[in-house]
Amino acid sequence: MANKKVNKKDIAKLLNQWRQQFTVLAPSKENGVAQMAEWDGKDTSFLDWYRNTVIPPKASFLPPMEEMFRFQKDKEGYHIELPPTNEHKQLIFGIRPCDARAMTILDMTFEEAYQDPYYLSRRKNAVLVGLGCTNPCESCFCTSMGVSPTESTNVDLMLTDIGDQFLIEVVTDKGKELIAKASGLKEATKDDEAKAKETKETSYNKITRKLDTEGIVDKLQASFDDEGFWEQTAAKCISCGICTLLCPTCYCFDINDELVRGEGTRFRSWDSCGFPVYTKMPMENPRLEKWRRVRQKVCHKFEFYPMTFNVIACTGCGRCIRLCPVNWDITQVLESVPVKTGVRK
C-alpha cells in the first residue's frame, strides 16, 4: 500500500475516527507523569512536548498491577472467578520505535516461552501507531541497539514528521485496516517521501550516545565470576526498582494473594531483580549482596536473553540512565566489562 500523509492539525480528527473502534491511548502528563493514557478526544498538545514517556508503553500490556482472579473458600473447596473478559482493543498512538521494539522483545517471553493469557489478550487486540523521534534525549542510545529512532518496524503504522504533516507508512495488515477506515488522508508525494527520508537521517544522527556490543555475550560470560568488577560496578547502586520497573523490556512480576474473610484476590504486579527480597527463599538468598543483583540485571539483558532468544533485551531507550537517582549508566558499565580470555563453561 502506498504511503499516506495527514496534516498535523487533523490528528485529532484521525484519532477520533479510530476512537469509534478502539480505546485510543496517547502521550499524556495529565496524571503528573508522562505516560500513555486514554486520549480525551481533543488534546493534541503532546505533539509539542512529547519526547518519550516516563512510564513505558509495556504498562498497557503488563500493567503495574492487575487482578488475575478472585476466589472464595467454603466447605466444598475453592471457587475461582476469572476477571470479566475484555477485548482490550487498545490503539497506542505515538509509541516510539525503541518501545515498539521492546514489545516484540516482550512477546518472546510471553508468547514464545509460554503463553501468558493476560498479556496476550491485550497484545493480540492492540494496534501500535508509531511516531518517529525527531528530538531524542541525551540518554538515548537506540542506534547502538540496532534501532533507528524513526524506523517503521514493530508497529502497524508509522508516522514521520515532514513539517506541517506526518508521512504515514503502512506496515502491517492491521495498519492497512486502520487506513481503510480513516478519511481525510492524502496520498504521499515523492516530495513527501524525500522529506521523510531527510527527517529519518537527521534524527538518526542526533543519537550521540554509543555503545559497542560486539562480543558482549562472551565478555560477560568471561567476567561472570569477577567479583571485584561487579562490586565496583554496583557500589553506587541504591537497589531501587526504577531502572527495571521502568525498563520497556523488563517483565518480572510478583504474585500475591489477599484473603479477607474467605474472599480472596490474586494479584500480579511488577517486580524487580534489584530488590533483595526478589530471590529470598526460606533458607537463604542467593542474591543477598548488591553486586549479585546488579550482575543479574546486566547479564539478563545482555547475556541470558541473547542466549535464549538471540536478541539483546535492551532497545537503548535511555530511561534507566535518565531516571537513575545516582546516574548509574548502563553504557558505561558495559564498556568497562573487562576483556578476558577463556570463556566460563
Partner: peptide, 11 residues
Amino acid sequence: RCIRCYACRNV
C-alpha cells in the same frame, strides 16, 4: 501513581 520502586526509601 506510585510504582513501588522504593527509590524514596533506598535513597
